[in-house]
Design a protein around this nucleic acid. Structure first.
Length: 807
DNA sequence: ACGTCCCGCCATGTG
DNA sequence: CACATGGCGGGACGT
């Protein structure tokens, strides 16, 4: 026993955390509870404690128990519990160094980062506050553990640290580490209930994957980056960034909006509310946030359907509670830290993201990248689900709730590590890099990025939305936004899968800051795009597209189901890979000025050509100009669109792309439409009335400094609209503006008018659009399989992947 | 007094 | 039905 325990301990704590942490912490911390920092320290302590056989033993019983318990899991590896030893081994094998470094990084980073953060427009984060502290007491050391652990000592954050300490951040790929919840609970001396809380959050980040009933596989941080990237993508698709803005700024009240119709979403199953999902959503908020700081309040509101109504007040409280649980775990992971944001009203508790934001993943060369890489890589990726946001918003009307959709969340079960992931981001080496921040500030410009594309059918599938919702638009406030479509995928599926987004973004780094080029690709229909772009020829046809889409969807659906049933991993892998192409397109460097656009465009298109994925439209934002000046390049191909377009457009046919001044856009009304496709989905989108545009998928804006731009993407909707070509949606969101209070962005409307573009050097803000979003989840449901609905239960997920719970 | 959030009841799911 | 999960919120702890 002891040995065992010890082993664990050893493994865990010692090396990594300790060393590093202490140092840092000391400096800063003040008090907060669980910071990762603390963790570091605490860990040791804890570990000690826990380590101490006594503790464990106590709880659970004799050592034997432990033995019993444990055995199971590790077996896989080789030995049973002794495994601890194994673990150690693994760990060490894993390259402790790396881990350590990482840890260090992490640890340190935060601090640095914090400082960086510039002020934010609206909210300011107090740096000062930030501290991490370790307070926990780390202090006490060892012994006391037994003593009476204070409440803090029993905190989820600490517990999580202990948990994390048991396993290597980067376990060897081949040898999976099995985790038995019972064992862990025993070893950590806590009730299983608590372990569930931790594991659910970890699962949401693909740090662990569920295998079966009481067993999980430990993935460590290997997949983390990919997962985060995926979450970011999804978050953007969902329009969370918009929401964030709204929420942030606006007070309570209005944020909403949203939703619309889909309605569907509602399904709130247990699962929907699960910690896991909530965790993903919460993380998404950080990833799409310009400031990377999310207040609890905002998060709660966004995550709740209704924000704060009175009625919902209790909900709000509950949500906040859960967010604390999640935050504690994330803090332990070193992904966030607690800060306070000053707002008009006063200060609010908030959390700042310390993890990577930009995944540059891809960074690779520029562009390209592999999106594919991204997605495919891990199977495990988490399913995400997000959805809800919109719901939340929508919530306002009760009506929305009505439909539930199912979600299909299935969880994937385990995913095997199967595919080799790509490195997307360089994971391999260093784990996470938190560097991004730096980047943002300094580097800036290049964001490269990737894009992904995917065309893959899968996406479509997901997309489906409930029909019902579709109608929505009317229901909503006009403005609304709803919609985006988002991909339905969201939820249920694993991120990856869905993820592949349809669109590509192109970011042109080269441009100097100010200028940005956004490429929109139509997600859905890849086919079209390519064509259009390449040659002036028109493109095609909507009809065709649609069909395609539809068909694809159908396929997708099937796939999903299947996959669900089987393995998600597979799914992911497959589909995703395709995506990659888009990314290529961009070059990093493109010429700066706007004009360049054309050339680039082509470039892009070509690259992308590979599949369909090419961007169909480009949004070019000149440096100086703000959104105002945005020009849209539409591919000539677009069908109808051209017509509408203003002058420039006209030529469209002839030209591959049409540049549309932003100014012109206004003329075109934005429309939200929901489309339905075949039965299944309806999407709503925002678009200009112009036909032409496509739906863009994402665009990125690069701007300068600070980080990242926000991107928004849109979703994709595959569907062509029935009648119109509305393909385009816009969104706008751009990044950057610092807005302060400013604004009101209109929701839907695009930013065009707004200033967004410019990212100011300051911070990027997101743009305005808020809009839409929809619930992802709902959509996801696409599948609709009805059957599942009730399943929601936890268990099910694993097992059932396939089902959709729809409600 | 208030922000956090532990604790564990008990609903939901599963086998 | 027993067991596994995990939503949920009362109310305690910390400050």
């Amino acid at each position: 026993m002891e040995g065992e325990c010890l082993a664990l301990k050893d493994l865990t704590s010692p090396r990594k955390h300790f060393t590093v942490e202490p140092e840092e912490d000391g400096g800063q911390s003040e008090q907060k509870e669980n910071m990762y920092t603390e963790r570091r320290r605490s860990t040791p302590l804890k570990s000690a404690e826990s380590a101490v056989p006594a503790l464990l033993i106590n709880r659970k019983g004799a050592t034997p128990d432990l033995a019993h318990i444990t055995p199971i899991k590790h077996t896989a590896l080789t030995e049973p519990w002794t495994p601890t030893a194994n673990l150690k081994m693994l760990i060490s094998a894993a390259s402790p160094d790396i881990r350590d470094r990482e840890m260090k990084k992490v640890l340190f980073r935060p601090i640095e980062n914090d400082k960086d953060k510039p002020a934010i427009p609206d909210t300011v984060v107090d740096d000062a506050e930030v501290d991490d502290s370790c307070q926990f007491e780390a202090v006490d050391g060892e012994d006391d553990a037994e003593k009476k652990p204070s409440r803090k000592q029993k905190s989820l954050g600490l517990l999580c640290q202990k948990f994390l300490a048991l396993y290597p951040d980067y376990p060897p790929l081949h040898s999976p580490i099995w985790i038995s919840l019972d064992e862990v609970a025993n070893s950590l001396g806590v009730e299983r209930r608590r372990i569930y809380d931790i594991v659910n959050v970890l699962e949401s980040l693909t740090i662990v994957g569920r295998i079966a009933k009481n067993s999980y596989t430990w993935y460590g941080r290997q997949r983390l980056e990919a997962t985060l990237e995926e979450l970011q993508r999804k978050g953007r698709q969902q329009g969370y960034h918009l929401q964030m803005e709204l929420a942030t700024e606006a007070g309570p009240g209005r944020e909403d909006d949203g939703g619309e119709g889909d309605a569907g979403n509602a399904g709130c199953n247990r699962k929907d509310k699960s910690l896991r999902i909530m965790s993903q959503k919460f993380v998404m908020l950080f990833l799409v946030s310009k400031t990377q700081t999310v207040t609890l309040d905002a998060a709660a509101k966004i995550l709740i359907e209704e924000s704060q109504d009175s009625s919902s007040h209790s909900k709000y409280k509950t949500k906040v509670r859960r967010l604390y649980d999640i935050a504690n775990v994330l803090t332990s992971l070193g992904l966030i830290k607690k800060v306070h944001v000053r707002e008009e009203r006063g200060r609010k508790p908030a959390f700042k993201w310390l993890g990577p934001v930009e995944f540059s993943n891809s960074g690779n060369a520029g562009n390209t990248l592999n999106v594919a890489a991204i997605t495919p890589p891990d199977p495990s990726a988490r399913p995400v689900t997000c959805q809800d946001l919109r719901k939340a918003k929508m919530a306002r009307h009760a009506s929305f709730n009505i439909t539930p959709t199912s979600v299909a969340i299935q969880r994937q079960v385990s995913s095997a590590p199967s595919s080799p992931r790509r490195e997307l981001t360089g994971l391999p080496n260093h784990p996470v890099d938190y560097s991004r921040k730096a980047m943002s500030s300094s580097t800036v410009c290049q964001l490269q990025f990737g894009n992904r594309t995917e065309n893959h059918p899968s996406a479509p599938l997901q997309s489906n939305i409930s029909h019902s919702s579709s109608s929505n638009s009317s229901s909503l406030p006009p403005a609304s936004s709803h919609p985006t479509l988002l991909a339905p995928h969201l939820h249920p599926e694993p991120l990856f899968t869905s993820s592949p987004s349809p669109h590509c973004l192109a970011y042109l780094p080269s441009l100097s800051q100010p200028s940005v080029v956004m490429l929109f690709r139509t997600p859905d229909k890849p086919d079209q795009i390519p064509e259009g772009q390449r040659s002036p020829r028109s493109d095609s046809v909507d009809g065709r597209k649609r069909k395609r889409d539809e068909s694809e969807e159908a396929e997708m659906v099937k796939k999903q189901e299947i996959s669900g049933l089987e393995d998600r991993d597979k799914m992911r892998a497959g589909p995703q890979r395709e995506a990659s192409e888009c990314s290529q397109t961009v070059d990093t460097r493109t010429p700066p000025s706007r004009p360049a656009g054309l050339s680039r465009e082509q470039v892009f298109s070509e690259n992308s050509s590979s599949e369909h994925a090419q961007p169909s439209h480009y949004l070019y934002v000149p440096n100086n100009a703000g959104l105002n000046s945005l020009n849209f390049l539409l591919s000539a191909g677009q069908p109808p669109a051209s017509l509408t377009l203003p002058p420039s457009s006209v030529p469209a046919l002839a030209l591959p792309y049409v540049l549309v001044p932003s100014a012109a856009l206004p003329h075109y009304p934005l429309v939200t439409s929901s489309l339905q496709q075949q039965g299944s989905d309806a999407h709503t989108k925002l678009s200009f009335s112009l036909p032409a545009m496509m739906s863009p998928a994402h665009f990125m804006v690069g701007a300068a400094p600070y980080s990242v731009a926000a991107a928004s993407d849109l979703s994709r909707s595959p569907v062509p609209s029935p009648s119109t070509p509305e393909q385009s949606r816009l969104y706008g969101s751009a990044a950057g503006t610092p807005r302060s209070p400013s604004g009101p962005r209109q929701s839907v409307s695009i930013n065009t008018s707004e200033p967004l573009t410019p990212h100011t050097p300051k911070e990027p803000t997101v743009s305005s659009s808020k809009a839409f979003f929809q619930t992802p989840g709902t959509l996801g449901s696409v599948v609709s399989a009805a059957p599942a609905a009730r399943k929601r239960g936890s268990a099910q997920r694993r097992l059932d992947i396939g089902h959709p719970p729809a409600i």
